[in-house]
Nucleic acid binder design. Structure first.
Lengths: 236, 236
DNA sequence: GCGAACATACCAACTGGTCGGTATATTCGG
DNA sequence: CCGAATATACCGACCAGTTGGTATGTTCGC
């Protein structure tokens, strides 16, 4: 038999539980999600649940960690060697696409969902969320810093601060868009942010008739257009 | 006896319940907040609770509505006749102050808290949150539009879209700041937003030696400095 | 004294979590 | 290679505590 078809398949069961928890908690949040509900959605009994996770919170921790792990790497930044500004643009385009075309997904970030509920609790779950937010911010901050080194800036800015601003804007956009039932709000916000970042670097070459200086690193840099590009990462 | 000292005081009891719900839900969110907990915090029995509110959700609806009502008007915009740009600046300064100096308040917006949890539910509570978010956005949008009419703009923008962006940024900032346990993140974000809005209008008067054109409407326009200003509204 | 404003006792449904048990893999002596 | 021994994966009934909500008082102001 194949490995995936085994009757007893520990890794698959664990994964099913985490997947179910991801979906349910993204919809309803941590508190409103029931252990029984997760079990049903995962097609697993309670016995199995507590065989793998010591508590509901443990499962949530594992779920958030998995979300961050997959999410950060899933973020579609294009090829690693590309110009950081291009990669940033890829990030924006990916986020916009994921918001406008959520498929059957709940249009919410697990991280933001759980963080909102547990932000004032001293528990482990809050820490994991905090780390997750920092991870995304660090990624963006690195790109911004790299872009600063690769391009002349038109207006000085602090990469770290801007990265946090973008993170907050992303989380808030999801919250508002979800509540209003209008993904376009989030898309608009992201477009504004995208334009803002672009504007920080010099789009108009310094002198007239100076189309000479271009993106520093060469290679196949396909700057994505405004139109949607396939599924981008929906992180954090 | 005084009106406030009566043993049975319907309006006061209702208020106590709403106050308790506001505080508790801002800390823990809607789902994690218990009816019993609210009753204890309000110093009231369950009987009284259900005398005034048909259900937990009813109480939440009333609480969110009260939050919006008081919040929108509490937002410290300075005097009504002032220049819209000054009033916008007052708004930013007030928000920054409320974030940096939360006192004993939970550093969270009731609206965002509840909205995050119920964004995917079709219930009445979600609608109230949606309306609340729109109310704040409309307020800011009006100010931006008025500012556009009163001042030359250096860069074209859509007041409505920008207002939604600011709303999302505010909500997201609270979420991130709370989760990271660092109000300065939110304060920084707000400062960036404040600078961004300021930059949209011409800080450099058009021609050299043109210190003539000033804020349009006269009056006592005290542009608040960067330093903190007393409690601002922490809305939405 | 009468209705509104509260208090108390209580309930059915559900919560996260436990526990004894069973079925399947894995190991290992012979 | 085999079959017993043991470890792992999983099941589902069950539990004590909590939940939102109710039914039935009691008390107070007019």
């Amino acid at each position: 038999m194949f490995a995936g078809t085994k009757v007893k398949n520990p890794t698959a069961t664990r994964e099913k539980l985490i997947d179910a928890a991801t979906a349910t908690m993204r919809r309803q949040g941590y508190c409103a999600t029931t252990v029984d509900q997760i079990c049903v959605e995962a097609g697993v009994t309670k016995g199995a649940f507590f065989h793998y996770f010591g508590s509901k919170e443990d499962l949530a921790v594992a779920t958030v960690e998995a979300w961050c792990r997959e999410g950060v790497y899933r973020a579609d930044l294009g090829e690693a060697g590309n110009d950081p500004l291009v990669r940033l643009d890829c990030l924006f385009v990916g986020l916009i696409a994921s918001v406008r075309n959520p498929g059957d997904e709940p249009l919410a970030c697990l991280l933001g969902m759980v963080a909102q509920e547990l932000g004032h609790s001293g528990g482990r779950l809050r820490e994991v969320c905090s780390d997750g937010l920092e991870g995304w911010t660090a990624l963006v901050s690195r790109l911004l810093r790299a872009a600063k080194e690769a391009h002349p800036v038109r207006m000085e800015f602090d990469p770290d601060a801007l990265a946090w601003t973008l993170n907050a804007l992303w989380q808030g956009s999801l919250l508002v868009a979800k509540t209003r039932g209008d993904p376009e709000i989030a898309a608009n916000n992201l477009r504004q942010a995208r334009a803002h970042v672009k504007r920080l670097f010099d789009p108009h070459p310094p002198g007239p008739g100076a189309a000479v200086r271009r993106m520093s690193s060469a290679g196949s840099e396909s700057v994505p257009s405004d139109s949607d590009i396939g599924e981008g990462g929906s992180l954090p």
